[in-house]
């Protein structure tokens, strides 16, 4: 199993947000996590990636068979965990190229590899840019600076393609995307799917799951999973709304 989260409890400023969360993800699988706003979906992503201020009060996050809750965010990234941010951060003064190269070389160094050669780096970049239609004018700019909402999301997938993680977490990647951009992003993700990696797709709406077909759908409510099923569950949810989940919980 690639990821095994057991009885996870996460608090922010002493307030418990995740309350007994369990999830197992195997290589080659795509898991969708759905749920209304404020139910802890993004908190889950933050806890897996080790963001400061998200305190794990109970439970474990096992990744490749070991608990990673003590690892720093960069160590977790170097172990192959990638988060596509809901709100990608603008970093004025740091060029996209410098950023990606620094990240790639950090990950290579972690694995004991030499830095990538400039020519090779450019070749990889050209190849991956095509995957999500990233224009050269964007890679020459500062990270995310002046990018449109759609460009920022494409840029996340582009970075994911460059770093080739084993666990990709997509946090509300569909928010703020028009249908064409959504298709491009989904195509990018699908082309990266293999039996050597897995994805967790966090989304509010079923729409994205028309293009990134999940193997499992989980419904989150008040900090834990209340219902799991196949891809059909997303459609059911779309049809019946989150009120239906509320009723399920109350039963």
């Amino acid at each position: 199993m690639l990821l095994n989260i057991k009885n996870l409890h996460v608090a922010i400023n002493g307030k418990e947000i995740i309350k007994g969360f369990n999830l197992g993800v195997n290589y080659g699988e795509v898991h969708a996590i759905m749920g209304p706003n404020g139910t802890g979906k993004s908190t889950l992503a933050a806890a897996i990636t080790g963001r400061e201020g998200y305190e794990i009060t109970k439970g474990v996050i096992e990744y490749k068979g070991r608990d990673i809750t003590e690892l720093t965010p960069d160590q977790r990234a170097n172990e192959g965990i990638f988060l596509s941010f809901q709100y990608p951060v603008e970093i004025p003064g740091v060029s996209m190229i410098n950023f990606i190269r620094t990240a790639l070389n950090a990950q290579r160094a972690y694995k004991g590899h030499d830095p990538v050669k400039p020519a090779e780096f450019l070749k990889i970049m050209e190849e991956k840019k095509k995957l999500v239609d990233i224009q050269t004018r964007l890679t020459k700019r500062s990270v995310n600076e002046g990018f449109s909402g759609g460009e920022k999301k494409k840029n996340e997938i582009f970075q994911m393609a460059m770093l080739n993680p084993q666990l990709g977490i997509l946090d509300e990647t569909d928010s703020g995307l028009d249908i064409d951009a959504l298709k491009v992003v989904a195509r990018g993700v699908n082309s990266l799917r293999s039996d050597k990696n897995a994805f967790i797709v966090i989304t509010h709406y079923q729409r994205l799951l028309d293009y990134i077909i999940p193997d499992f759908v989980h419904v989150m409510w008040d900090g834990r999973i209340v219902k799991s099923g196949g891809k059909g569950l997303a459609l059911q949810l779309e049809e019946k709304g989150y009120e239906w989940v509320k009723e399920l919980v109350e039963e």
């Binding site: 720093t72 965010p73 960069d74 990234a77 170097n78 990638f82 620094t102 950090a106 990270v143």
Partner: peptide
């Protein structure tokens, strides 16, 4: 954090 999430050290 964004940079660290890409593998860059603190």
């Amino acid at each position: 954090f964004y940079m660290m999430q890409r593998g860059i050290s603190s």
